[in-house]
Design a protein around this nucleic acid. Sequence first.
DNA 1: CTCCCAGGCTAATGAGCGTTAGCCGACCGT
DNA 2: ACGGTCGGCTAACGCTCATTAGCCTGGGAG
Lengths: 194, 194
Amino acid sequence: MSDSLRSEAIRAAALDLFTERGYEATTMADIGSAVGVRGPSLYKHVSSKQGLLVQIIRSTMEDLLAAHRAAVATTDDWAERLRRATETHVRYHARHRREAFVGTRELRSLVEPHRAEALAQRAEYEACFRDLITAGVDAGRFRVASARLASYAILDLGMGVAVWFREDGEITEEAVAWEYGEIALRIVGANVAR
Amino acid sequence: MSDSLRSEAIRAAALDLFTERGYEATTMADIGSAVGVRGPSLYKHVSSKQGLLVQIIRSTMEDLLAAHRAAVATTDDWAERLRRATETHVRYHARHRREAFVGTRELRSLVEPHRAEALAQRAEYEACFRDLITAGVDAGRFRVASARLASYAILDLGMGVAVWFREDGEITEEAVAWEYGEIALRIVGANVAR
DNA sequence: CTCCCAGGCTAATGAGCGTTAGCCGACCGT
DNA sequence: ACGGTCGGCTAACGCTCATTAGCCTGGGAG
């Protein structure tokens, strides 16, 4: 009940517009017009423009983190963990490219304390990858010059996907996920299992 | 004479602010205050806020393309070309991280026809990498599932550098350039030279 | 010494935006 | 039938900005 169909449509429209024009360049009137309503009417459903952004970014970060934890829990082999974490990361950025795009590009537009909260979630997510790589190194499965650099590389690859991926493009989600999983393993110099 | 010291300082201040807060969130008064002047006084030196962004982005794209061409011209071995192109790409994004950051994040804020012009330059740059990879594949030096995917991967890695690189961080420009050059070669499955 | 003007300033203009206030019609349960 | 509330609308407020107009000053050229 907290969110009717209308509320959901508004969030979806805001997501589209924030992705295309950016948060600052999107007006409440724009969002309203996308759902067939005048700007002020939106306030019958949402608290504020900033609130819309907060919801979008928060739920994106939560989804991503949850997906990561689920993926990593399916095996205890370090290389396989990294592969699944990377595939999950990439798949999320392909499947929810608008959410992921806004989540990284519009962090700036968040007002405190929401910005700090989002940065903390992001830091936590990054730490998951870094720790995973460090653990793999300690276990003798990976060999890297810098775990930090390796994790940045893998994360950046995925975030790039949110920029260029198109559902109807020549590159499928399947292909990116597989290819990037392989690349991640090469980045950390994984030796083949067993 | 077209640009005095003051003009240069203004461009530098605008670059800093656009990087930190974004174009839309930066006011002329902010820029003025960064150079010790009131907002309106800036118009004695620059044509408009949009003009500042256009100059920044245009010269960034030109520099990047020029650097790429120079790097690629130093050898005709495909693998070595890709390595040098990647190192140049990465070094540029590390050394001029603010310019590169604004160049990718604020494309949206450009007004036509500047946006189209910048997109064309960007497309040209991307094509350089894609063509380089395709040529390497044709020459039997590389093996990739998709040249487009491989080029996106390499380009995204570099662009990520502009986000997290810090001159005083634990990872040096030298280290990123070398590491990413190696990764690029692995991404395209380069066989060792000779 | 005088004049000019580069380069600053303040004030004003005009537009856009988020948000609030207050009104109204339609539907719904009783 | 009827009262209420849900969800729309318009008008208005208050604020922020980019940009323009017009003034003033200090220093250098003649």
